[in-house]
Lab assay of single mutants.
Amino acid sequence: MFKRLMMVALLVIAPLSAATAADQTNPYKLMDEAAQKTFDRLKNEQPQIRANPDYLRTIVDQELLPYVQVKYAGALVLGQYYKSATPAQREAYFAAFREYLKQAYGQALAMYHGQTYQIAPEQPLGDKTIVPIRVTIIDPNGRPPVRLDFQWRKNSQTGNWQAYDMIAEGVSMITTKQNEWGTLLRTKGIDGLTAQLKSISQQKITLEEKK
């Protein structure tokens, strides 16, 4: 169930391209415009997507990853294993993690069937560096609404905000991946996880038929 919630949630996290980005210092504006741009692209490019579902990787690479804190999220997933990894191991892992996100997020976007969304009203940021933004996803086919909290983090150097995690039903996506990959990290280390991520990233994206 959580895996499905995570995939549905990713439908609204794909941010804007650099040329049309919203105010990078306001995570609420980023979330709002990102959702609108993403849904528009999914709707307008269905012919290309249906002809070649792996085209979704391109959308992810162009529109999402430049505005997601990939390395920060990847380091959180590694936890204690990050500090013990060599620079070469980290570089290989982050490259594999990025390719994994292209496949995983692309597969999530393949679930698009006309969903709509509501974003919580903007709250004062103050001096906060981590801000959760509640998004409610509404399914046109009558499924119950899904309420999610996207975690946005302020870059201490640039002042810009980027998304790095999502919490559904009190469970963090980062925590879920830590639990899912924990045994592999304990037995085969970061190299074993890197190899698995490379394998997963090679899987073809498949479209979910409308139910």
Rank of each mutant, 00 (worst) to 15 (best):
K3V: 02
R4W: 09
L5S: 02
L5Y: 08
L5W: 03
M6C: 03
M6Q: 00
M6K: 02
M7R: 03
V8W: 15
A9V: 13
A9D: 02
A9W: 14
A9R: 00
L10F: 09
L11G: 01
L11T: 02
V12Q: 03
V12I: 11
V12E: 01
I13E: 00
I13Y: 06
I13W: 12
L16Y: 10
L16F: 13
S17D: 13
S17E: 12
S17I: 07
A19E: 03
A19Q: 02
T20L: 10
A21M: 08
D23M: 15
D23Q: 11
D23N: 12
T25N: 09
T25F: 08
T25P: 09
T25V: 08
N26Y: 06
N26D: 11
K29Q: 14
L30P: 07
L30G: 12
L30F: 05
D32H: 12
E33K: 05
A34Y: 14
A35P: 02
A35D: 04
Q36L: 10
K37I: 08
T38F: 15
F39K: 01
D40P: 15
D40S: 14
D40H: 14
L42R: 02
K43M: 08
N44P: 05
E45M: 06
E45Q: 07
Q48Y: 08
Q48P: 13
I49A: 10
I49T: 14
I49M: 09
R50W: 09
R50L: 11
R50C: 06
A51Y: 13
N52W: 02
N52S: 11
N52D: 12
N52G: 03
D54T: 13
D54G: 08
D54C: 05
Y55M: 07
L56A: 07
L56C: 04
T58N: 05
I59K: 00
D61G: 09
D61P: 00
Q62G: 09
Q62T: 07
Q62M: 07
E63H: 02
L65R: 04
P66G: 11
Y67K: 04
Y67H: 05
V68E: 14
V68F: 15
Q69D: 01
V70C: 10
V70E: 12
K71M: 03
K71W: 02
K71Q: 05
Y72W: 03
Y72S: 00
G74D: 02
G74E: 01
G74A: 04
A75I: 00
A75K: 01
A75Y: 00
L76G: 02
L76D: 01
V77R: 01
V77S: 08
L78E: 01
L78H: 02
G79F: 00
G79R: 02
G79H: 04
G79V: 01
Q80R: 14
K83W: 01
K83G: 07
S84G: 11
A85G: 09
A85Y: 03
A85M: 07
T86I: 06
P87Y: 04
A88K: 06
Q89C: 04
R90W: 03
R90A: 03
E91H: 05
E91G: 08
A92N: 08
A92G: 06
Y93E: 04
Y93I: 02
A95Q: 07
A95D: 08
A95E: 11
A96P: 10
A96C: 09
F97R: 00
F97V: 08
F97Q: 03
F97Y: 10
F97K: 04
F97I: 12
F97C: 07
R98L: 08
R98V: 08
E99P: 15
Q103G: 15
A104R: 02
Q107F: 10
A108Y: 04
L109I: 05
A110M: 13
M111F: 14
Y112R: 01
Y112E: 03
Y112T: 04
G114C: 11
G114E: 07
G114V: 10
Q115G: 08
T116H: 15
T116N: 15
T116I: 14
Q118K: 10
I119H: 09
I119F: 09
P121D: 06
E122N: 14
E122D: 13
E122K: 11
Q123E: 05
Q123W: 09
P124K: 14
L125K: 15
L125Q: 07
L125G: 07
L125H: 13
D127E: 06
K128C: 06
K128M: 12
T129Q: 08
T129V: 07
T129G: 08
I130H: 04
I130W: 02
I130M: 09
P132C: 14
I133W: 02
R134C: 07
V135W: 09
V135G: 03
T136V: 13
T136L: 13
I138R: 08
I138M: 09
D139C: 15
D139V: 11
N141L: 05
N141D: 06
N141T: 12
G142P: 09
R143K: 05
P145K: 05
P145Q: 05
P145T: 06
V146P: 07
V146R: 01
R147G: 01
R147V: 02
R147H: 09
L148V: 15
D149G: 02
D149M: 05
F150A: 05
F150I: 03
W152C: 09
N155S: 03
S156L: 02
S156E: 02
Q157T: 08
G159D: 08
G159Q: 05
N160C: 08
N160Y: 10
W161A: 03
W161E: 01
W161F: 08
Q162E: 05
Q162N: 04
Q162P: 00
Q162M: 08
A163Y: 05
A163R: 00
A163M: 13
A163N: 15
D165E: 07
M166S: 11
M166Q: 01
I167Q: 15
A168Y: 06
V171E: 00
S172G: 07
S172V: 04
S172I: 03
M173K: 02
I174A: 14
T175W: 10
T175Q: 04
K177Y: 07
Q178L: 01
Q178C: 03
Q178A: 07
N179Q: 05
W181Y: 07
G182F: 04
T183Y: 11
L184P: 09
L184G: 10
L185S: 10
L185A: 12
L185V: 11
R186G: 01
K188M: 10
K188I: 06
K188Q: 09
K188Y: 03
G189Y: 03
G189I: 00
G189E: 12
G189S: 09
G189C: 04
I190H: 08
I190S: 10
D191S: 06
G192E: 15
L193V: 13
L193E: 05
T194Y: 04
T194M: 06
A195T: 13
A195S: 09
L197Q: 11
K198E: 13
S199I: 15
S199K: 15
S201W: 05
S201P: 14
Q202A: 08
Q203H: 10
I205M: 15
I205Y: 15
I205E: 13
T206K: 13
T206G: 13
L207I: 15
L207H: 13
L207F: 15
L207G: 15
E208N: 15
K211I: 06
